[in-house]
Amino acid sequence: MIGPLRHLRSQADAAPDLDERDPDFIRERLPGLWLLSSVYFRGDVRGLGNIPDTGPVLLVGNHSGGRTTPDTTVLVSAFSTYFGVERPLFALTRTAPLSWPPPGWLRRFGIVAPTPGAADVALRAGASVLTYPGGDREGQRPSWEAGRIDLGKDTTWVETALRHNVPVAPVVATGGQETALFLGRLGRGSGVSVSLALPWVINVGELAGHVPLPAKLTIEVLHPIDLRERYGADPNPAEVRDDIAAQMQRTLTQMQRARRLPVLG
């Protein structure tokens, strides 16, 4: 068992091959994704019109829904129906190596592991990138903390945006934490999450993801931010991170207030 896992991990750690994203493959699966997003999750993606029609953008989202990442599915399909599959978007997510469906499938959708330099390669090629700085820690936070943004302490994404001079578009999602009952981590500091989720009932570690409950997912893309225009020629990455996180928190709080019932939305 360890051998194949190691192989997958080493594959995931390699520099991304952008050619693995397959626009025709995505296009043929868009109806299925649209059904999943619109009928199963009753998704509502707003603000895609805020993203400039051309050029790379760094989309920075809050992560919800554990390793099954329903919010990524809904956003990536909405981005593809809005801008067309011809406009490349790469989503950096840790689910790529280990979760269902098979990794090759995910890579053809443009989902790549968040290796050092993955965003650099994509942005340099003129593609847009979706990243979740909070990663697994945020995605697996307890369900009762669904209304909390946790982008973590890492400022790599800010430095990446500054290095490539690309705007940052904050993406705020809600509903993902209701696709299972996330209970937090086993012990302090452990990376092992625990949740009550289908079909496992008790899901420890989320190695194989889970079948998400049909919670209503709402995603809002905020106005892109030109970091140097807003924060000056040489901004402090930590201050930029905190300011954007605060902006996202205000939006998430409003979105959470608009929700009346868990799962139903």
Partner: peptide, 10 residues
């Protein structure tokens, strides 16, 4: 506007 997102093209 169809379902979760805006759908269309050129």
């Amino acid at each position: 506007r169809l379902g979760s997102a805006d759908v269309g093209g050129l």
